[in-house]
């Protein structure tokens, strides 16, 4: 069984839900980024998504956009994120997933990128601008390297599409909670529950919810309807505070750990 499958199986057997933490690879710089990844793991994240910075992140709100800009300014890019994954894999056994827009992957070459991602120790990929229609080649190639291409489904995804997407999926299903871009929000729309129920009915794969989640109340609201939640902007905001000089490095790592522990305690 893949690392991703194993984590969710263990969670299930204990009646727990997974906490998936997102961080931009190379934000605020490559050295600290590795420390942040280790902190996320040590404080209880069950899976870590590492963002690969891109100049034009269509699906991201301002917080992750700025994280990408910081990472690029710090010299991060495809090579650096692969190296970061490899370094993290030296010390961590939890699943690591790369979140990247398609273009930087195309420039390295699909097969070459996937091969190197697998060698580095990644377990899967999330490509937010690659809908199912365009993803067949990458999905097949990824499977060849033992990588899961994790699909996104949205509140606007109709039943037929949903069946098709879920039917081809591996790893887990990433449910987008809102029609919108990434970024922490105060509450979740009520329709989230019905979306999660619809998806759960179609698959045995773990179903996780992301976009807009950063508060314990939100997690309490939906945790019975999914297998895990994805938290990004709420963590990235802490890094941003550090880059603005509002907090010191140790405080940043402490706040990140606290945030993960707080959210985890609800799961």
């Amino acid at each position: 069984m893949s690392r991703i499958g194993q984590v969710f199986a263990e969670k299930r057997s204990r009646g727990e839900k997974a906490l998936i933490a997102y961080t931009m690879g190379g934000d605020p710089n490559l050295t600290l980024s590795l420390e942040i990844i280790k902190t996320l793991a040590a404080s209880g994240a069950d899976l870590i998504e590492v963002g690969l910075p891109f100049s034009d992140p269509l699906a991201d709100g301002p917080v992750i956009q700025r994280a990408g800009q910081r990472a690029l300014a710090a010299g991060s890019g495809p090579e650096e994120v692969l190296a970061l994954i490899a370094a993290a894999r030296q010390e961590l056994s939890l699943p690591l997933v790369i979140m990247s827009y398609l273009n930087p992957i195309l420039q390295i070459g699909i097969d070459e990128f996937l091969r190197r991602a697998a060698v580095a120790g990644a377990d899967g990929l999330i490509i937010p601008d690659l809908p199912a229609e365009e993803g067949e080649e990458i999905r097949a190639a990824a499977a060849g390297y033992g990588l899961d291409l994790i699909p996104l489904v949205a509140p606007t995804t109709g039943q037929k599409r949903l069946e098709r997407i879920v039917g081809h999926a591996s790893g887990f299903i990433y449910c987008v909670s809102v029609t919108g871009v990434t970024g922490a929000r105060d509450s979740l729309p009520a329709e989230v529950k019905s979306l999660l129920q619809k998806v759960k009915k179609l698959t045995e794969l773990p179903v996780c919810l992301g976009f807009g989640i950063g508060k314990p109340e939100q997690i309490a609201y939906i945790k019975d309807y999914c297998d895990g939640v994805i938290v990004g902007s709420a963590l990235v905001e802490i890094i941003e505070d550090y880059t603005k000089g509002e907090i010191k490095k140790d405080k940043m790592l402490e706040l990140i750990a606290k945030k993960v522990q707080t959210l985890k305690s609800v799961l």
Binding site: P128, D129, A132, E134, P151, A154, T156, T157, V176
Partner: peptide
Amino acid sequence: ARGYFGPYGGQFVPETLMAA
């Protein structure tokens, strides 16, 4: 039918927009 001019075109957008 998939919106391709030879190898170019397609629909590389977030899933949220596919229904639209």
